[in-house]
Design a protein around this nucleic acid. Sequence first.
RNA 1: GCGCCCGUAGCUCAAUUGGAUAGAGCAACGGACUUCUAAUCCGUAGGUUGCAGGUUCGAGUCCUGCCGGGCGCGCCA
Length: 546
Amino acid sequence: MLRLSLRAEIHDRLSELFFEAFGKESADFVVEIPPEGFGEYSTNIAMANAKTLRTAPRQIANKLLELLSTVSWFTNVEIAGPGFMNFKLSKEVYHHVLAEFVEEVKFPKLAREKVQFEFVSANPTGPLTVGHGRQAIIGDVLVRVYKSVGYDVTSEYYFNDAGKQMKALGHSLWIRYNAIYGESQEFEEDDYKGEYLVDVAKEFASEHGDAYVGKWDEKIQKLFTSYARDRMFDWIKRTLDKIDVKFDVYFSESSLYKKGVTDEAMALLKEKNYIYEKDGTIWFAVSKLLPKEEDRVIIRKNGEPTYFFSDIAYMLDKYQRGFKRVYYIWGADHHGYIPRMQAAAQALEVPDGFFNVIVHQFVTLKSGEETVKMSKREGEFTTLEDLVRRVGKDATRYFFAMLDPNTHLVFDVDLAESKKMENPVYYIQYAHARVVSLLKNAKEKGVSWENATFDNLTLPAEIDIIRFMAEFQEVVISVVNEHKPQKLCNYAYSLSEKFHSYYNANKIVDVENRHLSADRISLCVGVKNTLRTVLSLLGVSSPDSM
RNA sequence: GCGCCCGUAGCUCAAUUGGAUAGAGCAACGGACUUCUAAUCCGUAGGUUGCAGGUUCGAGUCCUGCCGGGCGCGCCA
């Protein structure tokens, strides 16, 4: 019955009625769950159309009210305040909704488009930080949600394992390696000074011995670099695995050059006249497309392309692979990069809406009163791995998904560690486990619920829970449209809240009253199914017992 | 200086995208286990939504200007 969501259905019916009453389309209006005491649902349709109809809201409402009372869905329609229309829904509607959630929680089907999410994309120069963790979870949750509503989604990790920084990594490893043999060497400015290379150096030493102590040439540099890179990548992938983040594609920057996409991109830009030479470098005329922006170098004086040029070619490659839309998830430090990429999108003539960026703000760790700054170069940071080891996968995922990507996240390590039990993720999981336990209990007592009629579900709390379950599709749609994973967290938490409260106030399994029990158990099954579904979108487990 | 993001209870966050009386958790106080998992529930207290204007039937949400915080403004990645 429900194509999208209950509220969308109500919205459609109101639209039809409006057309019937006034012979024209309604202006935009909303159907919402109002505060206590204003009915079960509410709409502002009368107020929204007051201007265009040049009629008082209450008058419009009155006209609609007559029609509404002829439709079986709506009961108790009332007009309130400046022109709100408040109403209840018939029992049958709720029974139908509950029956669906008891059987299977369905996703709205939105689009089959081929889209791509690219995130994390950390170069293999060190372990993932907690900042990468936030990005990994935001991206992974969005991928799961997009898949659920029908998109053909590819998750992708872009990396550069060829540039200057990789040489620095190799050199840094070599220094740590020398230190093992008591040979002290100086770090260079761009080297990676983090302790994590010490262990890698030990491994290297145990495999290769002291053959390279005090010796340094191009061949040795390559050996150290590739060794370090492989170790770092292994580490990164292992960490991602621990938080259940999987990428469909790992894409290397150098493959762009091998494939020749870079040449294509250059030819395209030249042809459109966006390229010029100055001071021995090649520039991309960003200002031609976006007057407020500055032109940018894409080929350096030494003949090497800049990162920006690779990104232009990469975008072209994404387009050629047939994606209808691509999403880049970037940290706040990259936001200044967006305009020039937009200019690139225009220059490459990819369709409007192809290039999209989801920016997330920074994560800082708090321990006591100290905030931990994170710099991979200086070696000061907490690894994502450490964090997961402390608080576990479920809490890590939930916490990173819990806040709006657009707000600064302060991760209080002490709190995450010591007050684990106040964790909202446990609260939700506990609700799930409780229902499972209920079902076991019912089985033991021989109370069945398969043939429930739902007729006994008349308490306001019961209607409220059904009504809230019916919001599920709406929440999923908003996550797709707004890229805000935290809506799933809030939804799961609120549903758990309603359930815990209901559970405490009412006896669910009662051998003396089997019909009532069957109905109530069914309601709980609906809650359980919904929680399980939302948690799986978040990548958080749904334990049967705790 | 310019640009992007944020500012809601003591703390961490909600608020159905412009709706009615701004809601939860933590911290504080008081209650509920011989009863389906007390990792729970119920209650009390806590607010000039950073400030000042504007837009309209209606603003935490939109527009302008301030204030405060974060980030960015490379031939780095």
